[in-house]
């Protein structure tokens, strides 16, 4: 069984993540679209930390004997990988769009004549 202190600390830390993400959305510093994965991460980890029997059961399913909280680490790492992969796709899209913007700007300047580049 997971030590109680680990469960409490895990639940508090995960739930803090949820609150921070919500505050970032509220203050317009994080778009909902990019917040969803973070919220899923925080809520899942909060749930797994608080639901101690469940964590035990899942640890049994995946063959983790002796120290169930290892499942928390595994799930956390999986989510972080998902977030990173998501951001890689976002960065790829942004860099494509940046190229298009620069090209469109160059074409526009050419159309406006030399004055625009002075």
């Amino acid at each position: 069984m997971t030590p109680l202190a680990v469960s409490i600390a895990g639940a508090i830390a995960s739930f803090t993540l949820v609150l921070v993400v919500l505050e970032l959305i509220r203050s317009h510093r994080l778009r909902e679209r990019y917040a969803l994965l973070w919220l899923a991460t925080g809520l899942t980890l909060t749930g797994l930390s608080a639901w101690r029997e469940g964590l035990n059961t899942i640890a049994g399913w995946v063959g983790v004997r002796g120290y169930p909280p290892a499942v928390l680490f595994a799930v956390g790492i999986l989510f972080i990988l998902a977030v990173l992969l998501h951001y890689s796709t976002v960065i790829s899209r942004l860099s494509d769009q940046n190229v298009m913007l620069a090209q469109r700007l160059a074409l526009l300047e050419e159309r406006l004549g030399d004055d625009a580049t002075a």
């Binding site: 919500l22 959305i25 509220r26 909902e32 679209r33 917040a35 969803l36």
Partner: peptide
């Protein structure tokens, strides 16, 4: 479904602005 979740989240958070 994705949009529903996103929009509901946006509305919910928006209430606290």
């Amino acid at each position: 479904v994705y949009y529903m979740v996103k929009v509901l989240l946006a509305i919910f958070v928006g209430l606290f602005r």
